[in-house]
């Protein structure tokens, strides 16, 4: 399906917004998580979301938005990100992030790949595929951690809560209206 450059730019800038939020969420959890191994996991993985942010930020510039500018996601999607960031127990953070939010984002990325024109949108597709490939490693790291420290595996239903919020989503991009400037 061919969408307009304007729509693609808004989607890419929204992906950037989501990745900045994930980087900041993990960063905020580093000093407030007591368990050394979980702290280390969050610290290693925030770099992955920084890299995805960087790639989407550059791509937004190529799609005629300013480089490294984010577009805030739709209000219901922001509510999911806010809920994720508010988890304060380590097991909820791990379950919410790796089993909950990454799965939601994975679905968004896969849906985007299915919708995108593979030739016209090849640069964006490569970024999204790279992110999905990284997710496998992040989730494997998390599984290794939980296998070593089973007390971190309970999660208190954090992932279920986030997935339930995502079920009612009708979209995650807050597209610009015709009146909004093309450049931000």
């Amino acid at each position: 399906m061919i969408s307009t450059v304007r729509q693609r730019a808004d989607t890419v800038a929204t992906f950037r917004y989501i990745n900045v939020r994930l980087m900041e969420t993990l960063a905020a959890w580093v000093p407030t998580t007591a368990e050394l191994e979980a702290k280390i996991l969050f610290g290693r993985h925030l770099w992955d979301f920084a890299q995805h942010t960087d790639l989407f930020g550059n791509r937004a510039g190529e799609l005629r938005l300013a480089r490294h500018i984010s577009r805030r996601a739709s209000a219901p999607f922001v509510a999911i990100l806010d809920r994720l960031a508010a988890f304060d127990e380590t097991d909820s953070r791990i379950d919410g992030f790796y089993n909950g939010f990454l799965s939601i984002l994975e679905n968004l990325y896969i849906h985007d790949l299915e919708e995108a024109d593979e030739l016209l949108e090849e640069p964006t597709i490569r970024i999204v595929k790279r992110a999905l490939w990284d997710f496998e490693r992040l989730q494997a790291d998390c599984r290794d951690l939980v296998a070593e420290f089973p007390q971190l595996s309970t999660g208190n239903g954090a992932s279920c809560e986030l997935k339930a919020m995502a079920e009612s989503l009708s979209g995650f991009v807050d597209f610009r209206s015709d009146q909004e400037d093309f450049k931000q």
Binding site: L41, F42, R44, H45, L46, D54, H68
Partner: peptide, 20 residues
């Protein structure tokens, strides 16, 4: 600036690896 934040994120990941 985004470039500085990117550097800080990399530093965080490096220090995490060092601790591990």
């Amino acid at each position: 600036p985004w470039g500085l934040r990117l550097n800080l994120a990399r530093q965080a990941a490096d220090e995490a690896r060092h601790a591990a």
